[in-house]
Write a protein that binds this DNA or RNA. Structure first.
Lengths: 248, 248
DNA sequence: CGAAGTGTTGAACCCCTTCAATAGGCGTGG
DNA sequence: CCACGCCTATTGAAGGGGTTCAACACTTCG
């Protein structure tokens, strides 16, 4: 334990929060937001490899990333692992635990990460008073369902090059939304973690990065990526689902 | 249009419904349920191939299957298709449209199918009065997120035989929950539709069915399946994720 | 009966994995 | 500071699981 370097929980101030537009509290008016804010526990930074919650843990809170990034993943009974999502500031975590009152995934920090925790019973209580909060939760939930569908499509129907291209484009899109560069960014995850998320071997990711660089589509230096040709990347992302599994 | 054979919408009676325990209205007391029931539109049977809604359609209602079965699928920009789910009586459909106010998937009947439609604005209005309805929606939503995660795991990390085995076990589980046989059932979907859901070629599904039958694990006659050895099937479902993409 | 759709089976090929070996970064400790 | 070890990443060669292509059986329906 490194208590000495952990900041104590501090009072949240959602009305000033840079990410309030992303948070599931986005629909609340200033009065409601102030009350919401009092329930929020700002949680001090955790370092790479530490978890917010583990698969099987009882649901206590919902979480929103404030800084840093997080990977969620699922372990099956027989010991294989599947990365489910990479999360960035403003993203909601842990909602899926509502179904069984236990977290179906583990959430682990990819880098030093700060987050907010809101006890789920407080969310429910507040949502009773401010229905806008229900809408925020519901819309976020629906978005996560959609994201899962697209993940299956990616892994199920696309070739390895298309998967990586689409992955980079999705990251890019996320950074733009957060006011960062569309074409230059640092990956917060390792090749291994990308490989697992895209369901290919690490070596394949390595080769694909090299290919993309060789073809002038991107420039890569370790975790730093520059997209040199967005159109080329988009073409690659669409191209080649060599599987003919159309049902009609 | 076959209007002549369509039953007119009839008044729903949720309190008598065989599937009320599965429906997202499961938490309502009898008073609330009666009011809920008045908002429900019983929709007459549609035949195989007809859709409840199409990808891109505006969200109007949530749907619950009353009889029959439905497949939802996603088309990507570049024309590849991914089956997302097979739905049976009691299952909720269309919730994912809440995120963007448009259905991200198409829902098509696999056989003659009857369903209930509940206008979404009515759901919201009722949920304001009866918070139990919010919980029903939220829990169902969370379950769908979890289901999506497991689907990615299946497609991303498991070998083709394991995918089919797991698929059969999931179907089996669903039938048990609904009071049907665990070991004998009819598939409502074609080989092609199974193949697409599991992200393999049709021929692979065919071969795997033959293999399973040859090994005495199941007996198949067209769409009728008998599970002869549940343990063997469970072993196959766990076995072999030949991809070593562990991140740790 | 013939045509179309669905399912099955065989053989060849290919994308991606696996195995293996090397290079590069980074923290640790002498 | 540099040497050492560990971990991540890269690249080559070989192999395999599943796809693709092709032909055939069976059912359904007009």
């Amino acid at each position: 334990m490194h208590n000495v370097i952990l900041f104590p929980p501090i009072a949240a101030n959602c009305s000033n929060c840079r990410w309030s537009g992303f948070c599931f509290a986005q629909n609340l008016d200033s009065v409601a937001l102030a009350e919401f804010s009092r329930q929020v526990i700002h949680s001090g930074p955790i370092r790479r490899g530490n978890t917010l919650f583990r698969q099987g843990d009882k649901l206590k809170s919902l979480y929103v990333i404030r800084a840093g990034s997080v990977r969620t993943y699922l372990d099956s009974e027989d010991g294989c692992e599947q990365s489910v999502a990479f999360l960035y500031p403003g993203d909601l975590l842990g909602f899926d635990a509502v179904a069984e009152n236990r977290h179906p995934t583990t959430a682990v920090a990819l880098e030093t990460t700060a987050y907010c925790a809101i006890p789920y019973d407080r969310v429910v209580a507040l949502a009773g008073k401010f229905p806008g909060l229900w809408h925020g939760v519901i819309r976020t939930a629906a978005a996560q369902v959609t994201a899962g569908q697209n993940h299956v499509l990616l892994v199920g129907q696309k070739s390895a090059p298309a998967r990586l291209a689409k992955f980079l484009l999705c990251l890019s899109e996320g950074f733009v939304t957060r006011g960062c560069s569309r074409t230059e960014f640092n990956l917060s995850m390792s090749r291994q973690e990308i490989a697992n998320y895209l369901a290919v071997a690490v070596e394949t990711i390595s080769r694909l990065f090299s290919d993309l660089q060789r073809r002038g589509v991107i420039a890569v230096d370790r975790r730093f990526v520059q997209i040199l040709s967005l159109p080329a990347l988009q073409e690659l992302a669409c191209d080649s689902a060599q599987l003919r599994t159309r049902t009609a």
